[in-house]
Simulated scan of single mutants.
Amino acid sequence: MMEKKILLVDGMALLFRAFYSTAMSGYFMVNSKGVPTNAVHGFVRHMMTAANTFQPSHVICCWDMGAHTFRNDLYPDYKANRGAPPEELVPQFDLVKEVTESMEIPNIGEVGYEADDCIGTLAKAYQSEAEVHILTGDQDILQLLDENIKVILLKKGYGNYDIYHAERFTEEKGITPYQMIELKAMMGDTSDNYPGVRGVGEKTALKLLQKHGTLEDILANLDQLTKAQRAKFENDLEMVHLSRKLAEINCETGVTCDLNEAEFRINRERAMEKFQELEFKRLDSLF
């Protein structure tokens, strides 16, 4: 077993999950300065519960750096269906990074890329020297499953996880994690607002991938598809190629993080000072 165990945290996924788990009931934990803190408080609980469960030697947190990415340049309607974040969440975007910094956990992000792209880049960079665990609530990141790369999916509540390795994914889906990119290219993604091949769902896309192996081979053998399937692909030929580019996590963003700076050694006094400033309660037991 490798000595290094790196936990790559999808900061955006944890922050949004923490916000909406309490915001639905109108509970924003506004402190005496009028600043809402519910998302940051929940983020810390999620991250520290996972750290205590999986005992990483290193922790790195990855973030989106603005709404516009290279995917918007490829397809202007990418995520165009998403409204502006709630006003109670906006001040917590910067605040959460202050909190992770106080815990001496590196914040990593790159303008023009999503947190997933930074996670993918770091995971691939570290997998030869460490066991990498990715903490997220986003199943899109399952495409990164590989040797020494596992994904910890958050489930409802705190401390409940669905842990994936490449072998489990293949057993369940009948395809490799990498083929998930082409699965999404065909079936599209309503959350990210791109259509893929209209009329082709997950069941059909899976069968085609299991039979042909790659999107390229499916397109090279359209004559083997049913008449209806062939028509759908021919009508959306350009979009399926574009959707593949949108679906693939970019693992060559150029982001780096010196592992010496990511050793998980929280200065409890410094962290608690920040928590007291924000008027956080019920977090002491996690440290």
Rank of each mutant, 00 (worst) to 15 (best):
S32W: 00
V40K: 11
G42D: 04
H46A: 03
C61P: 00
A51I: 14
W63C: 01
V44E: 08
G66V: 08
A51D: 01
S32E: 09
K33I: 00
V59E: 00
V59R: 00
H68D: 06
T37S: 12
S32K: 14
A67F: 12
I60N: 06
A51G: 02
G42K: 06
F54K: 07
M65N: 14
I60Y: 07
N38P: 09
H41E: 08
V40I: 14
H41L: 15
L74D: 08
R45E: 12
A67N: 02
H68V: 15
R71S: 09
M47C: 11
T53V: 02
L74F: 10
D64R: 03
T37I: 13
A51E: 03
H46C: 11
M48I: 00
F54Y: 15
D73W: 00
P56C: 11
L74N: 09
S57R: 03
P36E: 07
Y75G: 09
F70W: 12
G66L: 09
V40P: 10
G66W: 01
P36R: 10
T49N: 11
A50T: 09
V59M: 14
T69A: 04
A51Q: 01
L74H: 10
P56T: 09
S32N: 13
Q55K: 15
A50E: 06
W63Q: 01
V59L: 13
T37G: 08
M47Q: 09
N72P: 03
M47D: 00
T69Q: 03
V35D: 04
F54C: 09
F43N: 04
T69R: 02
N72A: 03
T49W: 00
R45V: 15
M48L: 15
I60L: 15
T69L: 04
Y75N: 08
A39T: 08
F70S: 04
N52T: 01
V59I: 15
F43S: 04
F70E: 02
A50F: 06
S32H: 10
H68G: 00
Q55V: 12
M47S: 07
P56I: 12
T37A: 11
G34K: 05
P56D: 08
H68L: 14
C61N: 08
F54S: 08
H58Q: 13
C62Q: 02
S57P: 06
M65H: 12
N38V: 13
H58A: 07
M65I: 00
